[in-house]
Amino acid sequence: MRDVAIIVPTMRRPESLARALGSLFAQTGVENRLAAIVVVDNDPQATAEPVIAALRAASPAPLILVHEPRPGVATARNTGLAATDAPLIAFLDDDEAADANWLSALLAGLDHTGADVVFGPIRGQVPEGTGWTRGYLERFFGRQGPSETGLLDHAYGCGNSLMKRATALPGPAPFDAASDQSGGEDDVLFSALAARGGRFGWAADAWVDEFAPSHRATMKYALARAFAYGQGPSQTAARDRRWGGVARWMLIGAAQTAVWGAASLGLTLIFSPRRAETLDRTARGIGKVLWMRGLEPHFYGARELARLSKA
């Protein structure tokens, strides 16, 4: 029964896309489950075609290329979903490469937990020359979880995940396009799923590597992302008009900012590498306080397209 489609959004990353697809072609134990690999080219100039043309013959399942000229992470995911009717949807980012047993481990995790969504662990990979921040950045771009497969009490991000379409991805466009430029579309999706009584699971053996490019493997980028992550719970509460929840998260954020900000100052004065972690926690605290729309950093869509055009 071919019941799984893998969706890979991409924008002007030909080498990275080829690496991601090569890892999907090498998946083992899922020959009778994989219905399609869907690549969503989110570049208005449709630059992914040469990569797909070169690799299509090697694909173990139909390799579908769809063009979504409107840059945005949520819109790209929605477009990928529209290209397949598979009941199970896996997501892999174009800067990731999956272990050979990745999809089979996700499927086993879904069966074992009975969850609506299962997530897998990520090894963060950063370029040489990141100096004292290397360990922090590898953890930042990675994802650690329980050592054994089982249910979770919270969600992670869409990268390296498997979802039941009927329950986790309702409607024709389940990802919120308002998050196209800043990200966080998965926060909205999973918050709504939790409110409906959905369950989250962890597949401990479903490993992928995430390769951070040099322009992202910096403290400036990581702290901007940490700030955006901090905004998430406050923005979710505001979206649901739970103003008491907003106030609670803002108070938590203020306390985190004070505590971790003081720790960061002390560690900076003695040049301790541990200051990277405390600066991260400080940025997340500030994000909970300064959650308002218009203050989100932009990492995707038009901003990323503009950066790539200048590169």
Score class of each variant (00 low, 15 high):
Leu308Gln: 15
Phe200Leu: 11
Pro60Met: 04
Val66Pro: 03
Gly120Leu: 05
Ala178Ser: 15
Leu295Gln: 05
His67Phe: 11
Gly294Ser: 10
Thr268Ile: 03
Lys288Phe: 04
Pro50Cys: 05
Ile7Cys: 12
Asp93Tyr: 11
Gly230Met: 07
Thr28Glu: 15
Gly266Lys: 08
Gly245Leu: 12
Ala26Leu: 06
Arg196Leu: 04
Ala311Val: 09
Ala74Glu: 00
Val66Ile: 11
Val40Thr: 05
Thr257Gln: 02
Gln125Ala: 14
Phe227Gly: 04
His298Met: 09
Gly244Tyr: 04
Gly129Glu: 12
Leu290Tyr: 12
Lys288Tyr: 07
Asp41Phe: 00
Asp205Gln: 14
Val73Lys: 09
Trp207Cys: 08
Pro69Asn: 00
Arg165Tyr: 09
Glu68Trp: 09
Gly294Lys: 06
Ala195Leu: 13
Ser179Trp: 13
Met219Glu: 14
Gly287Thr: 07
Ser161Thr: 13
Ser272Ile: 07
Gly184Ser: 10
Gly29Cys: 01
Glu96Ile: 07
Met163Ile: 04
Gly80Ser: 11
Arg281Gly: 01
Ala178Asn: 10
Thr268Phe: 05
Ala228Met: 12
Arg239Asn: 08
Gly22Tyr: 09
Arg281Lys: 14
Thr47Ile: 04
Ala61Ser: 12
Asn42Trp: 03
Ile7Lys: 10
Glu304Pro: 02
Gly22Asn: 13
Leu81Gly: 00
Phe271Cys: 08
Ala168Leu: 01
His67Arg: 07
Leu92Gly: 03
Val38Ala: 10
Ala206Arg: 01
Leu251Lys: 09
Glu185Ala: 15
Ala238Gln: 04
Pro69Cys: 08
Leu251His: 04
Arg134Cys: 10
Asp41Arg: 05
Ala108Arg: 14
Glu304Tyr: 12
Ile286Met: 13
Arg139Phe: 11
Leu88Val: 14
Phe140Gly: 06
Glu148Trp: 02
Phe200Asp: 02
Leu151Gly: 07
Arg239Phe: 07
Ser59Pro: 00
Gln45Trp: 01
Asp186Ser: 13
Ala5Ile: 05
Phe271Asp: 13
Gly301Gln: 10
Arg275Val: 03
Tyr221Trp: 15
